[in-house]
Design a binder for these strands. Structure first.
Length: 817
RNA sequence: GCGGGAGUGGCGAAAUCGGUAACCGCGAUGGUCUCAAACACCAUUGGGUGCAAGCCCUUGAGGGUUCGAGUCCCUCCUCCCGCACCA
């Protein structure tokens, strides 16, 4: 047996080459002999090197996928790159590098890093969203959605980032700022493409059959924001002496008698029709001001309520009362009907508004049934008062239902449901993305590019600076084309798609990444999908995960898929923070693992990242513990190369040997449970315990027994997912068949793992007073006799007889005096 | 404000059902080895007290249930994350 020091650099390079040339991690399509297992990590942006945050996110899933393979699954564990997007384009603007070049260099760099870290990804299925072979199908899928009526073009007030000069999705506006550059976002009216995600609002609220972390489910549910209520038609009195329907949405129809004024969103079309001559100047100024407000100014709750009276009135159908109509920016055009009934007595915002502008407040709900003094809006339950025929009803029920039924019976409105979720705006006025495959013809309007003309290739250019419209608009040869229908001159859409469109279907592409005649091979998708285990950061709880769920449902309705959900089981890793917070290139606090790999080896780094913190929690990055995992591997290397009893055939039958067998089986059980549960820190801890036990006996007679050898074999197999290189090296050095990664996962024997003796804790009046060893299965009377005859116990009892005794076998003997 | 998660040694952390709090590591201290340092190995390491056997205290704070609470219940504090004028 080769002795000598553990030299990770040499071992790791050697096995990485061997695994690559043997295609050890290749997934097998249509192999029905083993259960399939599709394990997926969220693919990274190609913004630069992989940092320790990335690696922390990937090493746990890598262990889990390797474990699944040893458990006999046919594992698909692919990797790819979310390669379109702003980082490449910003680098192009800043450093003059072509985005494609920037992306390609980063991709190669990241692949090398992943290989040196020993990741078990199937790189033969690499997906690159910026490759024309990929985005051709992104475009094709866009057209399928368009043909199905799920992609549409509309003028809309959109979020506009003045610095990046692009439109943003609602999901990309964080605290009123652009989530890329932090600039305050403003509103702008533009013709844009939308995906009709709102058609799926109710279906997206259904998480049946999904094993997802509760916080993600909650976030998506809140984001979709379903509210049940009632739409009620008030009558607006227009300035020309006419009447117009003024629909409002309310979740509180029980407060309809408390309406003392109405509020329109500044963008509401009725504003113009109800504003009187006297008020016109003031209203127009206000509307103009609201339009120019940044999101953060407008949406802040600290922002004091503003608004102006239109001079116009509306009639409440329930009591025929005339109430004034105001315009205020706290009412949003994009929610409900863009108009509200204001009930200051029972709504905090209306209350604040009424106080500020001296509007009447009428109480219609009282906790006591009698009018009370209102210091603030009363939103609790109670009894209806001042409500005509509904006086005396308790609310919420039955008042809500009764009023709603009455409104409906009178033909004044309908029960209705409002959602916070808006349609997904996907147009981006940027260069580095998939071009929107639409041509505008004077005669035929928006026409999709025919399949045979796909992909619509990104044109080459050197000018990436956005000027309020996409850089593509400046490329004449690109823009000018002909109409696919009539052949007359036409113009291309010059926008590109949101990169979240690219990432909404990449997991489908992995199943058949080289398919040239379709977005994906239907048989391959049916074989592999859905993803059994998806792993990534919680920051994608609403963006990517909601979009992907929508995509699968939409493609299903296009007849392209037969599944309803993309990801069955979801697990989120915690965040690794360093210095100023989450690691990111833009923050300049990036820590790359490469140097640690050089000094300690990939296996040590892997183990360290698994060990440092629970995978789902993350934590503060520090290198101070890396020596511990390195010492562990040194120790394993020493034990195996110096003490492995290759030819041992006999057991020696000592208690120490039984103890070692027991620990081995307990370790198998613990490691299995921990990996299943994504608790990798305790998994590594179990490996260390087994190694420590072997270390303790390695110089004794026991180290020449077959059980000692079996314990080492088990240790190597159990550590193979975490420290793949050293496990392989030592597996081979001990004369086993290549490869340790193709061995079946060890099975524990419950009877061998069971203890035959336990330490019984004796408590007197709740305090631990004694401990003694008791053989398993000793009957209670015997235990009782043994415990009570202990000198320590009888001293404490001091002649008194126990009032109560509780005996929990295996655990505790509790005496109450 | 609403929703979610978390508070345990000097540090990262562990703890099936409510049953020995602090496993496994890092660091620290002492020792062996060395000319010396590093490495490695051995020992100690929550706090207090005692010569010792031991005793007392300790899981953000306070209360409760229980023979027994890090774990369950109530009140409160702090931190992190998400949403935030959604009618």
């Amino acid at each position: 047996m080769a002795k000598g020091a553990y030299n990770p650099a040499e071992i790791e390079a050697r096995w990485q080459d061997r695994w690559a040339s043997d295609d050890l991690y290749r997934a097998v399509d249509f192999d029905e002999s083993r259960p399939k297992w599709y394990a997926l990590v969220m693919f990274p942006y190609t913004s630069g090197d992989l940092h320790v945050g990335h690696w922390f996110a990937y090493v746990g899933p890598d262990v889990h996928a390797r474990y699944k393979r040893m458990r006999g699954n046919n594992v698909l564990f692919p990797f790819g790159f979310d390669a379109f997007g702003l980082p490449a384009e910003n680098a192009a603007i800043k450093d003059g590098i072509q985005p494609a070049e920037f992306t390609r260099a980063n991709m190669e760099r990241m692949m090398v890093q992943l290989r040196t870290l020993g990741a078990a990804f199937d790189f033969s299925r690499k997906v690159d969203t910026s490759d024309p072979g990929y985005y051709r199908w992104t475009q094709w899928l866009f057209i399928q959605l368009f043909n199905k009526g799920l992609a549409y073009r509309a003028e809309a007030p959109v979020n506009w980032c003045p610095k990046d000069q692009t439109v943003l999705a609602n999901e990309q506006v964080i605290d009123g700022r652009c989530d890329r550059c932090g600039t305050l976002v403003i509103k702008k009216e533009l013709e844009q493409w939308f995906f009709k995600i709102t058609d799926y609002a109710d279906e997206l609220l259904n998480f049946d059959g999904l094993d997802w972390p509760q916080p993600v489910v909650t976030q998506q549910t809140n984001w979709i924001g379903r509210s049940e209520g009632c739409e009620v038609d008030f009558t607006a009195l227009t300035t020309d002496g006419g009447q117009e329907k003024m629909g409002i949405f309310t979740t509180r129809p029980d407060t309809l008698f408390g309406v003392t004024f109405m509020v329109l969103a500044p963008e509401h079309p009725l504003v113009e029709k109800v504003t009187t001559k006297e008020q016109r100047t003031e209203v127009e100024a206000y509307v103009e001001q609201a339009r120019n407000e940044t999101e953060i100014e407008r949406q802040s709750t600290e922002h004091e309520k503003t608004g102006v009276f239109t001079g116009g009135y509306a009639v409440n159908p329930l009591n025929d009362e005339r109430v004034p109509i105001w315009v205020a920016d706290y009412v949003l055009m994009t929610y409900g009907t863009g108009a509200i009934m204001a009930v200051p007595a029972h709504d905090e915002r209306d209350f604040e508004f009424a106080k500020k502008f001296g509007l009447p407040i009428r109480q219609v709900i009282s906790p006591t049934g009698q009018p009370t003094e209102l210091e603030e809006a009363y939103t609790g339950e109670g009894v209806l008062i001042n409500s005509g025929r509904f006086d005396g009803l308790t609310t919420p029920q039955p008042a809500l239902a009764e009023v709603c039924n009455y409104v409906r019976a009178q033909g004044w409105g309908e029960p209705s449901i409002a959602y916070r979720l808006r349609d997904w705006l996907i147009s981006r006025q940027r260069y580095w993305g998939a071009p929107i495959p639409i041509v505008y013809c004077g005669e035929h309007g928006a026409v999709p590019v025919p399949d045979e003309q796909l992909p619509v290739l990104l044109p080459e250019t050197d000018d990436f600076k956005p000027q309020g419209e996409s850089p593509l608009a400046a490329v004449k040869e690109y823009v000018e084309t002909t109409c696919p229908v009539c052949g007359k001159p036409a113009r291309r859409d010059t926008d590109t798609m949101d990169t979240f469109v690219d990432s909404s279907w990449y997991y489908l592409r992995y199943t058949s990444p080289n398919e040239e005649t379709a977005a994906f091979d239907r048989l391959a998708v049916d074989f592999w999908m859905p993803v059994d285990q998806y792993m990534g950061g919680v920051e994608h709880a609403i963006l990517h995960l909601l979009y992907s769920r929508f995509f699968v449902k939409a493609l299903r309705d296009c007849g392209l898929l037969s599944i309803n959900e993309p990801f069955v089981r979801l697990r989120n890793q915690g965040m690794i923070v360093y210095g100023s917070g989450k690691m990111s290139k833009s923050k300049g606090n990036v820590m790359a693992p490469d140097q640690m790999v050089k000094s300690h080896g990939a296996d040590s780094v892997r183990l360290y990242m698994l060990f440092i913190a629970p995978w789902s929690d993350g934590g503060m990055w520090t290198e101070s513990g890396i020596d511990g995992t390195r010492r562990f591997l040194n120790g394993v290397h020493y034990l195996v190369t110096s003490t492995y009893p290759k030819d041992a055939t006999a057991a020696i039958g000592t208690p120490e040997e039984r103890e070692l067998v027991r620990l081995t089986h307990q370790t198998i059980r613990a490691c299995t449970q921990d990996i299943e549960a994504f608790e990798f820190n305790t998994y590594v801890s179990s490996l260390m315990k087994l190694r420590n036990a072997l270390q303790d006996v390695h110089a004794t007679e026991l180290a020449r027994s077959v059980e000692y050898r079996r314990a080492i074999d088990a240790l190597l197999q159990l550590m193979a997912p975490a420290a793949p290189h050293l496990a392989e090296e030592l597996w081979s050095a001990t004369g086993h068949e290549y490869s340790v990664h193709q061995q079946p996962w060890p099975q524990h024997d419950e009877s061998l793992a069971a203890v035959d003796e336990f330490e019984l804790v004796v408590q007197v009046n709740g305090k631990v007073r004694d401990r003694l060893m008791i053989p398993v299965g000793t009957d209670e009377d015997h235990v009782r006799h043994t415990v009570l005859s202990r000198p320590r116990v009888s001293d404490l009892l001091d002649g008194k007889s126990p009032r109560k005794i509780i005996y929990v076998p295996g655990k505790v003997f509790s005496i109450v005096v």
